[in-house]
């Protein structure tokens, strides 16, 4: 009996540890995403071109009619998205409230849907790729996978 209880405690500890690792991953990738979209947002506000590398389509992608929704550039929404994931993850680490995992997972679904949409836009519609946008797709994919793992473990 005592032995069993001990095991559960150990399991609990293991679970908490794994959740911490997942949270740190979320923090890292949401921070990367935050930097990426912040760069694009600042460039947009200053109306200066981004330093395009690897792919040469930044001007086309960022200048296309798809780059804005409700008059605001997509990078602004991305910025809010990554900031929300970042803040929620810290909130989770601090409070350990399980429902926050649910929120993060919900947000990450939204993120991955947008990422897939942007990927289709860049490769099939605009036919130009922008490294910052692809990096954002990468980040939101990782965030989705990590929060999916976290959500399933719950």
């Amino acid at each position: 009996m005592v032995h069993d209880e001990f095991k559960t405690l150990e399991e609990e500890e293991g679970k908490a540890k794994k959740n911490t690792i997942l949270s740190v991953l979320l923090l890292i990738f949401s921070f990367f995403g935050f930097l990426d979209t912040l760069y694009l947002s600042v460039k947009e506000i200053l109306a200066s071109p981004v330093s395009c590398f690897i792919f040469q389509g930044c001007s086309q992608v960022l200048g296309s009619s798809y780059s804005k929704i409700f008059g605001l550039p997509l990078s602004f929404y991305g910025l809010i998205f990554y900031l929300a994931i970042f803040v929620l993850t810290i909130r989770y680490l601090e409070s350990k409230k399980e429902k926050i995992i649910k929120w993060i997972f919900g947000l990450s679904i939204l993120g991955i849907l947008c990422a897939v949409y942007f990927l289709i836009l860049q490769f099939a519609v605009i036919r130009a790729e922008c490294v910052y946008c692809l990096f954002s797709v990468f980040n939101s994919t990782i965030i989705f996978v990590v929060s999916f793992v976290g959500f399933k473990r719950k």
């Binding site: 930097l35 912040l38 760069y39 600042v42 460039k43 200053l46 200066s48 330093s51 803040v87």
Partner: peptide, 24 residues
């Protein structure tokens, strides 16, 4: 304190980015 530190940190990153971009 934790949230103040985080808010200040985020603000610092934003400012650093603006400085880096405009200094090119």
């Amino acid at each position: 304190i934790l949230w103040v530190v985080i808010a200040v940190g985020i603000a610092a990153v934003v400012v650093a980015m603006i400085v880096a971009v405009t200094k090119q």
